[in-house]
Amino acid sequence: MLNLAKIAGDLPGMSQHFKAEATASRQRLDQALILWQQAQEHQTELVRTAQQFSDRLFFSVALPVEPLDTRPVISTPPVSHSIFATDGSQIAPSHHEIAYCYLINIGRIMLHYGQNRHPLIDSIPEVYYRPEDLYVSRQWGIRTEDWMGYRRTVLEAQFLAEMACRWVNPPGPHSEPNLALVDGSLIYWFLEGLPLEARDQILTPILAAWESLRKVGVPLIGYLSASRSSEALNLLRLQACSYDQPHCAQHCHHYQEREEKTPCQVFDPLRDSQFWRQLLAPGQRSPLWRSSLRILDLYPASQRIYFCYVNVGAEIARVEFPAWVAEDQDLLGRSLAILLAQVNKGFGYPVALAEAHNQAVVRSGDRARFFALLEQQMIKAGLHNVGISYKEARKRGSIV
């Protein structure tokens, strides 16, 4: 139990700290805006520099593929269209439960607008209890809890592709526009540090699911709320660099050794979303950017990730999509229009993603019922001494 009376004395100091931080943030934003104006005049040179010296930088620079002053207004969505979305949740394995296993629950949403078709709103649970499911990741030094999260990402992509490719007729000249939505980034940077064999078991099926979406022409979008990325602003670090050739290890290694900011970090820790809030009106998007994160070297060319920032009204959202979507201006414009309509219907967040989450989430009552049902089946199978650990039993009760 949290004693609020004892913590109340720290709150005034916190308020003063955040007030000072807000003032400093405004100053960093002003400095970034000045660099942004300068960068617009040297965009071609900055992109060339970023490409030439990418292996000598301590940071990743996204490359703009449109003029930096591009801020188009997103059009209205087509009256008839379909939305597909998935999201996942899980019950983590615990040695204190009656059985060591884990469960992944994938929420599925298929909504149709302007059509006489029924929606799909459900979830699909998968239980993992066999040794090959629980301990396969140990050979690579990966915790079972982490591997469970990676497997959830795979299932989200596979179920999303299944809905779009099998349950709806593949798009044709007279078909309704479609859009596949996922919550979060399409750049799976967490795979970069995994062994090759483990990484292939996660990334390969995801890319296969994305390829099936590409073949039927259903665009894929990853929606990031409250993004903390600064990948686009890193272009301004090249503008702020005082050296003719940006070579971080050669020129600025002493700053890193002392854990100090380098001169080009004049606006750090400003985020892309904070910056674009000053430039985008509601319904506008930023220019398109091509991500340069190293993990994308494992993606095929058609699936390399592009992104832009969109003022959806409630916030500045980062929106990611594969190269084949970015390269089709009509398809991209229509997809962003459908996405913005979803945000408006969801009062600040895409309604399809919100409903997919609601279908996927495993609440405490669901968890209790799952293990109660499992306990019944284990007893029926003739197992004895079925029960939770004494530690878990005491944590669930109280003597006061």
Rank of each mutant, 00 (worst) to 15 (best):
S227E: 05
F347I: 10
R152E: 07
E392H: 11
E45G: 04
I34K: 10
A341N: 04
A341G: 00
G346Q: 01
F53W: 10
V310M: 10
L134Q: 07
V361H: 05
S75E: 11
A22L: 12
G149S: 10
V266D: 01
D330N: 13
E197D: 15
V361Q: 09
R26L: 13
L353M: 09
F347P: 00
L4F: 13
A161W: 02
A62V: 02
R258Q: 14
R138F: 12
I399M: 11
V216N: 03
L33Y: 02
E192S: 15
D268G: 03
L11F: 14
K6P: 01
Q43F: 05
I74Q: 00
P170N: 11
A354C: 02
S94N: 11
L298Y: 05
P12A: 09
H384R: 15
G313E: 05
L2C: 06
W324Q: 00
S185C: 12
Q90R: 11
K395N: 12
E392S: 08
R26V: 11
N178G: 10
N116T: 15
P350K: 04
D30S: 13
S364C: 04
Q51A: 07
R26N: 11
F347E: 08
P205S: 11
A381M: 08
F267S: 01
G172M: 09
I121R: 13
R237D: 05
R108Y: 06
S292W: 01
P78Q: 06
Q265T: 05
G346D: 01
F275L: 09
F370L: 03
D30Y: 07
S123H: 15
L120N: 14
S89R: 03
V79P: 00
T76R: 12
Q52H: 12
L236G: 02
